[in-house]
């Protein structure tokens, strides 16, 4: 594992910790998209089915379990916690799942490296991850007073994706047979989706202003 990959994973982990901390400490999930969290849960479930079939490393197994458990914890809080669920912006979080899930499913059925259930679901999770942040970005755009921690959460998630691109470049240069076109293209699309957010995040940080995204 190279330094970019490790930094990417740690940033991903940190993003989730920031979100857990924010919701738990403030007892509020204001500005957090339940749709994005549920899409991530679907991504992790489909991708990590290999927990049962394919042991890669202890590191890999533990990280997968952490990602699954933390995402399901957030969903549980947002849906069922008696204090937190009241703070969920239900009316603003209106992105439709089917607009993301169906195209990704069709694409995964058409474009995959092997037509088996496991492989199609794995590929589906790659495509879906690329766009799963969209409901969150739309919600942020509609939120007037974006919580610092919510902004940091999205910034860390975007940074994790950018670090993964550096990881692929490193692997491409150092591992002779390392090629993953579907993963690379999805990952680049995913990172591009964050560019606009990054621009406003860095601008607000430089000017010492509160983050707000123009509608």
């Amino acid at each position: 594992m190279n330094i970019f990959r490790l930094a990417g994973d740690m940033t991903h982990l940190l993003s989730i910790l920031v979100l857990l901390l924010k919701i738990n400490a403030t007892r509020s999930c204001r500005g957090v998209s339940l749709k994005t969290q549920e899409l991530y849960a679907l991504v992790f479930v489909c991708r990590y089915l290999d927990l049962f079939t394919n042991f890669i490393s202890m590191y890999n197994t533990i990280m997968k379990i952490i990602f699954l458990a933390s995402t399901f914890t957030i969903i549980y809080w947002m849906r069922f916690h008696k204090v937190i669920r009241v703070t969920y912006d239900r009316e603003q979080d209106t992105f439709r799942y089917q607009f993301l899930v169906l195209p990704c499913l069709v694409l995964a059925l058409l474009l995959n490296s092997e037509f088996t259930v496991m492989e199609v679901l794995w590929t589906f999770s790659i495509y879906l991850e690329a766009v799963a942040i969209l409901p969150q970005l739309v919600l942020l755009q509609r939120t007037n007073n974006i919580d610092n921690l919510t902004g940091n959460y999205v910034f860390l998630l975007g940074s994790y994706r950018a670090l993964y691109i550096l990881n692929w470049i490193y692997r491409f240069l150092t591992e002779p047979n390392y090629r993953q076109y579907l993963v690379w293209i999805s990952g680049i699309v995913q990172t591009i989706i964050y560019i606009d957010f990054f621009y406003y995040y860095i601008k607000s940080w430089k000017n010492n202003e509160k983050l707000s995204l123009p509608a």
Binding site: R5, H12, D50, I56, S57, N60, M63, W122, N177
Partner: peptide, 10 residues
Amino acid sequence: EAEAERKDEL
């Protein structure tokens, strides 16, 4: 072997 290597990323 190749399969594990291909899917070692999270």
